[in-house]
């Protein structure tokens, strides 16, 4: 990306811990360069895990952990990694981290493990992770790489959490497993009940919500695809 190569040149010897440029590393992927809504990466897991808030939150935390650690590791090793096998090396590091997350979930949050294990495994193939390693961590210092990974993972996280919020609310009538529809329909008397939308539970619902989010975002930012 052109902005990144420009940043490399203007690097100064000692930079504030959270300089303007570094803040941008985190804030850019949140909206202007969001991995899901702008780059349209990581859609697979965004569809799969977002039926409910709780697993989505676990997934988001896992992705943040994997991306930050992978970016850090690759950035530390960037001068020693042989360029001919760099993709394999990245893959090995990411796969190891993902397996670690999976093992920890299995030991301490077995219910989440059962629900998520397939998708946690799929973090390996999440284009956002490999994309950031290849595009950023391989050519930048560890601290910047951590910020970059954190920013991208955060950009991914808030979108899937937003999608999950609407899907769980409209599809299951609850948020974080707390029933919302039941008490509301209770206000209107015995025979009144709010119907949940089965479409929201299926992956199609995620596409619709995601499409709406992208629509709203692009209307606001004026982003046009080239």
């Amino acid at each position: 990306m052109s902005t990144e190569s420009a940043e490399l040149i203007e690097k100064k010897p000692s930079e504030a811990l959270l300089s303007k440029r570094r803040k941008k590393l985190i804030s850019d992927p949140l909206v202007d360069d969001n991995p899901i809504t702008i780059q349209v990466l990581g859609i697979c897991s965004a569809l799969a895990v977002t039926t409910q808030m709780q697993p989505t939150l676990v997934m988001a935390i896992s992705v943040i952990f994997v991306m930050v650690m992978a970016n850090l590791t690759i950035s530390l090793l960037r001068n020693t990694i042989p360029s001919r096998v760099r993709i394999i090396v990245q893959l090995a590091v990411v796969a190891t981290l993902v397996t670690l997350v999976n093992e920890v979930l299995k030991a301490f949050a077995y219910d989440m493990y059962k629900e998520l294990s397939v998708f946690v495994g799929l973090i390996i193939t999440n284009c956002i992770v490999m994309g950031r390693l290849e595009a950023y961590a391989l050519g930048n210092k560890p601290y910047d790489a951590i910020l970059d990974g954190f920013g991208s993972a955060l950009g991914y996280s808030w979108i899937i959490l937003a999608v999950a919020f609407f899907r769980e609310l409209l599809g299951s009538g609850s948020v974080f497993g707390v029933a919302i529809y039941d008490p509301i329909s209770g206000l209107f008397g015995e025979n009144f009940s709010l119907a949940t939308n089965g479409l929201m539970v299926s992956p199609v619902g995620a596409f619709i919500i995601l499409g709406l989010i992208i629509w709203v975002q692009r209307t606001k930012t004026g982003y046009v695809e080239h």
């Binding site: 020693t80 042989p82 096998v85 090396v89 090995a92 190891t96 093992e103 299995k106 030991a107 301490f108």
Partner: peptide, 27 residues
């Protein structure tokens, strides 16, 4: 490089698996 990487990552994974094994069994 590949051999060292494999060994390090392998040790890390088997170590974790050993460490967390009993907790996982209980889970």
């Amino acid at each position: 490089f590949s051999v060292i990487l494999t060994v390090v990552l392998g040790l890390l994974l088997s170590g974790t698996s050993q460490l967390l094994g009993p907790t996982q069994k209980k889970a």
